[in-house]
Amino acid sequence: MFPKPIEKSSRSTQLTYQALLPVALLLWLAPLIAVALFAIRPSVDFTVGNYWGMPSSFEFFENFAQVFNSSMPRYILNSFMITIPTVIGAVALSAMAGFALGVYKFKANLLLFFMFIAGNFVPFQILMVPVRDLTLDMGLYNTKTGLILFHVAFQTGFCTLFMRNFIKALPFELIEAARVEGIREWQIFWYVVLPLMKPALAALSVLIFTFIWNDYFWAIVLTQGENAQPVTAGITSFNAQFRAMYHLMSAGSLVAALPPVAMFFLMQKHFIAGLTLGAVK
């Protein structure tokens, strides 16, 4: 293990390390902690300029109740209604594509694979005008469906890269054995490969959930207004509504950030497996 395990150093080094950890963490998260501290203050603290002193009262519940009384819950709901179908769609499409690219040998295989990878890296702006146009033409501008369709298509690139590499690493003998048994190819996918892909499916689901939840660019390109916008875009109108009311803006930001954070802490192992693209084991 590198660096040298701390248990092998002197007692004083160990104690210093143990003391340094919380300090470092506090510094690292300071900007966020500051926002969390704002969210429990009453509005009067901001009008009299008491930003960092003792809060004059503790208004955590009051502030968050106000956030939930605004259009925020609507935006949160929109975010869920966009994110969940996208996760299902992208994971389903890429599981199939990954199976095709990971199991079969055919001429265009590597070319298609690299097309998916390359597409995943392009700047959003090169797609913006045509995709917005396409969405308008389909009558899906300012709908959740329009946003979902685009997200599914774009995330398929990244997901296929991940799935294909995962499937490629599975023992090929399993598939050959299944073929010898006379099992149909689609049945190999359904009964042999898919059950083995559970870790990959979990990793991608968590990761795509976070990516889509946090998307801002496409939200403002393809939607406007309360009925379709997800929370990342909604928070700017929320902030415009509560301009300079920092206690509410802080509380609102925390609420908007919460679902992916919860997802991460619940599914940490899968999340990290997904982030490293499965390339670093």
């Binding site: 199939m96 095709a100 298609l112 998916f116 597409g119 045509p130 369709l149 398929t156 690139g157 996918f189």
Partner: peptide, 19 residues
């Protein structure tokens, strides 16, 4: 493989490659 690739390819072409 092509049957499995078609849905992903259609979506990806429509929303990424063609644009």
């Amino acid at each position: 493989p092509w049957l499995f690739l078609i849905p992903a390819m259609i979506m990806f072409t429509l929303y990424v490659v063609w644009p």
